Computed example of a mutant assay.
Amino acid sequence: MHDPYFPPLPALQRLVTPLCNALHLYTLPLHIHEILSVFVIYHVIFEYVAPPLSGYFLTKQYTGLSRESKLRWNMHCVSMVQSVTICVLALWVTAVDEERRTMNHEERMWGYTGAAGMVQALATGYFLFDLAVMVRYLDVFGVGMLTHASSCLVTYTLGFRPVFNYYGCVFMLYELSTPFLNFHWFFDKLNMTGSKAQLYNGIALITVFFSCRLVWGAYSSFNIYRDTWNALYFDPYTTKLSTNTDMMRFGSDHALPAWLLIIYMGGHITLQLLNVFWLGKMIAAIRKRFTPEAKAAKANGVTSNGAISKKKQLNGRATSNGVAKKLS
């Protein structure tokens, strides 16, 4: 299936082709415009759309946030747009790309379709934007988030060799749980901690996270391990070869260097372990918001981070030394 996105500018494609060929990223020139355009779109949302819209529609809540919380709020807005968009496109390509659906193990490893490449490019553009924000605001997001952005960007960029082009849509479905995670964070900042909306969203978050990251993720990881094993012991004389020359025009050399396997396989194992860890942390965090202590704290005007709500502060009595509590 061809890439449904608009084609790259010929001048831009010619400009990046020599470097891409030198790095063995042969399909990257076909999608460089998608990466750059998505990078610009998400930057515009982060800098020029999320702040004024949030300040207009949620004046008290947004303007009362600290600098760090505002940056995180803006980032969650971008994450919401990205996760919904990429999941819809990944599901759509999975459903309608007939070439991708009928791939054999050789084509799943080294084959290429334009539609799957588009999904990969849009994800790469987001991770490029994510990395830029993590570097710019390292003091806010920390080294851990910087490492995550870097590793994701490297992994998806290497897919333009092409290798594992088939699996780009597969693992993008991890993002199905991200909108629920964003809503959970927004509820805290909107003083809705412990509300029924947060409870229902929390149940959906845990259910979708477990289903798409642990169950679907483990199944997909097994498939990619199996295809990799078959590729390592690939025998062109006994294995059915691909007859789709257009799909295999970039991966006919069947290159699979050891360092590439280490990055991909090691990354999948690490991510699966992290998913189990994150699920436990999410369950604990959601339970904490619905304990009797949390409900009592909310009734007394204490938010999830221990701060006194502005309303309670304004209505509260003076402290023992006669000085009113300072607004957070």
Rank of each mutant, 00 (worst) to 15 (best):
M1F: 14
H2A: 15
P4S: 05
P8G: 10
L12T: 05
L12V: 07
V16E: 02
T17D: 08
C20T: 11
H24M: 10
H24W: 10
T27K: 03
I35E: 11
F39Y: 08
V40W: 06
V40G: 03
F46S: 02
Y48S: 12
K60M: 02
Q61N: 09
Y62L: 03
T63D: 11
L65D: 01
R67C: 11
E68Y: 05
S69P: 01
S69Q: 14
K70D: 03
S79L: 07
Q82P: 06
L89D: 06
A90C: 08
W92C: 08
D97N: 00
R100F: 15
R100H: 15
R101W: 07
T102D: 13
M103H: 07
H105R: 15
G117K: 05
A121Y: 03
A123M: 14
L131F: 02
M134L: 08
R136G: 04
Y137E: 09
Y137D: 07
D139W: 04
G142Y: 01
G142R: 06
H148P: 01
C152S: 14
V154N: 03
V154P: 00
V154G: 05
V154L: 12
T155F: 14
G159F: 11
Y166N: 01
G168K: 04
C169N: 14
L173C: 10
S177Y: 02
N182P: 01
F187E: 03
F187I: 03
K196S: 13
Q198Y: 09
V208D: 01
F210V: 12
L214V: 13
V215L: 13
A218Q: 13
S220A: 15
S221V: 05
S221I: 03
F222W: 15
Y225G: 09
Y225W: 11
A231H: 07
Y233V: 10
D235K: 00
P236N: 01
T238K: 07
T239F: 13
K240P: 08
D246E: 15
S252R: 12
L256F: 07
I262H: 00
M265V: 11
L273R: 05
K281E: 07
A284L: 13
A284I: 14
R289V: 08
R289M: 10
T291L: 00
P292Y: 03
A297S: 13
A299G: 06
G301Q: 07
V302H: 07
V302C: 03
S304T: 13
N305G: 10
G306L: 00
K310C: 04
K310W: 11
K311D: 10
K312A: 09
G316P: 08
S320G: 12
S320C: 12
A324V: 11
